[in-house]
Design a binder for these strands. Structure first.
Lengths: 185, 185
DNA sequence: ATTATAAGTTATCACCTGGTAACTTATGCC
DNA sequence: GGCATAAGTTACCAGGTGATAACTTATAAT
């Protein structure tokens, strides 16, 4: 009687696994998230997940790469980058951003190695190439550092997400500080 | 033949447990550190550790509180606070600073609750009371947020620890940014 | 010296983890 | 319609976790 009798579809299954992994890794971090949790949220069994992604670390890497959407803020014009990045990284609806996953995965050796490599290749390098001026890699790293610290604390210490400082919200402060690094070429 | 034949001493044992816990929590984070690891480094057995601190979470809280040395930088004069804080939080010899332990313990619910509470009471509140001007709590939180992000990334992304930007090391950049928040009263 | 107590140990439990082997079943192709 | 294959499942294993019970032994007061 079910309108769609649950047809098999490997592509959609893989996508649902990736989404579940991104959500849970971002919420709970690498070591606190089990493959059974992810499989349950994706609506499948854990061995299937293992066959598609090889290991928990492999799934983590795939989920991280898939979560990167940095190219959407690397527009030709440099103005407004701070705001766009702050929006991209702090949108409360889609909170599966790289900073969130990274921040919640520090400490575990495997996750740390993967996160460092993926962020370096898929976030920091593109931003660095997009920047003008000198010290591109260092400035791109600083930008990501700031964004990550913001995401981390807007979750952990609730007051900071809403706090106002000299009339500017902390979100605006992040955008402004990031933009200052962009313009300091 | 041993000069000191390993006499029993509960106080010294507790202290050695606290030190081992601080080191390991700062190196590996909460969930990656087992009570057996801590007990082994302290040179005792894990049940003894449990009796002294009740649970792993209890030891984590005790270790965090014991690691706070914030009062050493809350001098009467406001000048130089940024540098002193950067030194206190990034001294590579004693890397058991609150930011390090915090950064490596996000994600685990118990650790998160404990860390938030301890940092709020033992770090942010004292700094806020020490600050001049308005928005004290928000500014103190921002300061700790910056310091934590720096510690986190100076460990995770090696380049940032040594990177130079416009001739200023990132350590100096942290000190300067913190000092700006202090002076913006 | 005896002995109560605190300091410390060994052995173990129940549970959870990532990972795997072996099984079932739907799907598309001939 | 038969059938090879991919999609998906159940049952399980070895190892590690936090925690506890029960044991031993050093220490210090009487």
């Amino acid at each position: 009687m079910s309108p769609e009798p649950k047809r098999r579809n490997a592509e959609k299954t893989k996508a649902s696994i990736l989404l579940a992994a991104q959500q849970l890794f971002a919420e709970q971090g690498f070591s606190q998230t089990g493959i059974r949790d992810i499989a349950a949220r994706a609506g499948i069994s854990s061995p299937l997940l293992m066959r598609y992604f090889g290991s928990k670390a492999g799934l983590f890497e795939a989920a991280l790469i898939d979560a990167v959407r940095i190219e959407t803020v690397l527009t030709p014009t440099k103005a407004g980058f701070g705001e766009r990045l702050a929006m991209l990284f702090t949108d409360s609806e889609i909170n599966i951003t790289p900073p969130a996953i990274i921040a919640l995965s520090v400490g575990h050796p495997d996750a740390q190695e993967i996160a460092t490599r993926v962020v370096s290749e898929y976030v920091i390098q593109p931003v660095a190439e997009w920047l003008d001026g000198t010290d591109k890699v260092a400035r791109a790293t600083e930008i990501f550092m700031l964004a990550t610290s913001f995401v981390m604390y807007s979750r952990q210490i609730p007051v900071i997400g809403k706090s106002e400082h000299k009339g500017r919200s902390v979100n605006e402060w992040l955008a402004g500080t990031v933009q200052a690094i962009v313009d300091a070429n």
